[in-house]
Design a protein around this nucleic acid. Sequence first.
DNA 1: GTCTATAGGCCGATAGAC
DNA 2: GTCTATCGGCCTATAGAC
Lengths: 200, 200
Amino acid sequence: MGEVAATRERIVESAMRLFAVRGFERSSLADIAAAAEARGGSVYHFFRTKRELLEAVLETYLGALVPHIFEPAFARTADPIEQIFAVLADYRERVRTTEFTYRCPIGRLALEVAGEDPGARVLIDRNFAAWRDAVRGCLERAKTRFRPGTDFDALSAFVLTVMEGAVMQCVAEASIEPFDASIAQLRLFITSQLRKTKRS
Amino acid sequence: MGEVAATRERIVESAMRLFAVRGFERSSLADIAAAAEARGGSVYHFFRTKRELLEAVLETYLGALVPHIFEPAFARTADPIEQIFAVLADYRERVRTTEFTYRCPIGRLALEVAGEDPGARVLIDRNFAAWRDAVRGCLERAKTRFRPGTDFDALSAFVLTVMEGAVMQCVAEASIEPFDASIAQLRLFITSQLRKTKRS
DNA sequence: GTCTATAGGCCGATAGAC
DNA sequence: GTCTATCGGCCTATAGAC
């Protein structure tokens, strides 16, 4: 390992990109290898099947979730609730700047392969669970600001629900507007779950 | 037309079912024809390409939305807000009874093909828009119960957002629980947007 | 470990008999 | 309008030289 980047790593990175943009089925191993500047047969030196490559992709996403998705957003603000919205703002920018070709890669794979590949389903579920856990961590750091009895498990799952549902409508509408509208409703909801204090 | 059911209709119905369960890419025209009790070549008598068949499927969904999705749910309750939750309850039952193989067919196609097929994208968007319109109709019938200034466009889009995001997590978790949890949060939110009255 | 070559299968689409 | 036969292409996966 080291060098320019081990061949295996380059193949996994190409697969991540192509699965996210084109989906699993439409991404051929030949295209993945070409994008990784490797040859078709090389893929089979590291992965026995295309599904095994998919699992490596999903494991890589899982490992990258906190350092690449949450930590950069957390670094921009100290307020735990605003940290959640900072993560959502990053998704927004990625969806917008790629013109809806690159959205939530896990969500796309969830609908495409989770129903037919039990191994992939478990890894997709683990990615979602880790995402919810990170959000729940934010909520719990703001615990005292919420009404007593607030269900943080349900609320963190709801944040993921809203993010995924919002991105889906952006793809259909080819517009970022549904994302902004849904996140605004989510903010209204979260605000409504806070204790009543003197100021906002 | 008439008879047992015109060949074209049977082909479209088979395609609806297979696209919903397996996705667009994994559903071969041979399988669709076989499920419709027709031969492979027959498909091309009615549709020039597979994408044209997809468009017929999406147009059929659009026409069936109000009579097959909304009217049966509306008939079960007179309360406009409960009518929305009745529609959501029907999705829940379909997701649950099919063990997450059949969910929201439009949502699945949205992530799989909307980014790459402009014609299909527009039809998917129209399906989503019609769904939101029907929900907004319910909200407006309950207008006087909401706080003044409530944004019904945003709220109806939010209901779709929550439905789609919730179903996605059900697929990943192979459980109906995320759906129930998210719909419960949605109910909490909608309740919080109502005027304060004497009871509940 | 990397590459070439190719097997073997399935797919969308076409041509043409009836 | 329905069916058969088939083309050409692309795909996953394998075999084997270097």
